[in-house]
Structure formats: structure tokens, C-alpha cells
Amino acid sequence: MYPRAAAKRQVALCTGYCRTSTADQNPDHQIDALLRNGVDRDNIHVDVASGAKASRPKLDLVMQLMRAQASRGGPGKPGGPGAGGRGADPGR
């Protein structure tokens, strides 16, 4: 018989990102979609950037958060909880 291991509860961090090309555009529809899909309003990051080479500081922040979480082995790491099916075997 295996000793009973204490289970660590991992909570998936849902982070959302949206972008508009100009300040005249309204990101509300994108934000509403993220909220409907379980992203907390505090975890939604919005950039206003035009062009492929434009600076996107909020996207950089989101990518940094995701890399930090993955390096800790948290949700979102391929094969781990919150991986969105990447590397996970749903038949297990």
C-alpha cells in the first residue's frame, strides 16, 4: 500500500490579453469575451498598438507571467493542469 501523499491544490491562473490598433477602437467586446470565459477582470491586460513591430508592454507582461508560472511547474505548463490539452492525455 502506498503512503497517502498530501495533495497540492493548483489553481489555474487565467490571464487575458487584448489589443486594439488605435485609441479610437473599443476593446469592450474582447474584454467581455474574456470575462465570459472565466478570466478575472484584474487579470485582463489591454494594449493599444498599431503595426507588427509596435511595442506591446502588456503582452510582454503576460508572456513574462506565463513563463514564470510554467517555470514553477504550475498550471499552464505543457502536460500540467490548465495545459489546454497540450501534452495531456484526456483518457487518463
Rank of each mutant, 00 (worst) to 15 (best):
V46D: 02
D32S: 12
V48R: 05
Q69G: 12
L61P: 01
G79Y: 03
S21E: 13
D24M: 07
Q69F: 03
P90K: 14
R36C: 07
R19H: 04
L59D: 03
S55E: 14
N26K: 10
T22S: 14
Q69T: 12
T20A: 10
Q10K: 11
L65P: 04
G79S: 08
C14G: 01
I31P: 00
K53W: 05
S21M: 08
Q25S: 15
A33S: 11
V48L: 02
D24V: 05
G91Y: 15
T15G: 00
G80Q: 08
D89V: 07
R56V: 00
N37M: 07
A12K: 06
A83V: 05
D42F: 03
H29Q: 12
I44P: 00
I44N: 00
P3S: 09
R56W: 01
R36V: 01
D89E: 07
D32L: 10
Q10V: 04
N43I: 00
Y2V: 02
G84R: 09
V46L: 09
Q64P: 02
Q25M: 11
Q69V: 04
R67N: 04
T15A: 06
P90Y: 07
G85T: 01
L34T: 04
D28Q: 14
D60E: 14
A6I: 12
Q30V: 03
A5M: 12
D32P: 00
L34S: 03
H29D: 13
R67D: 09
I44S: 00
D42N: 11
N43Q: 04
G84L: 08
Q25W: 08
A49D: 08
M66I: 13
L65H: 12
P78G: 04
S55N: 14
L34Q: 03
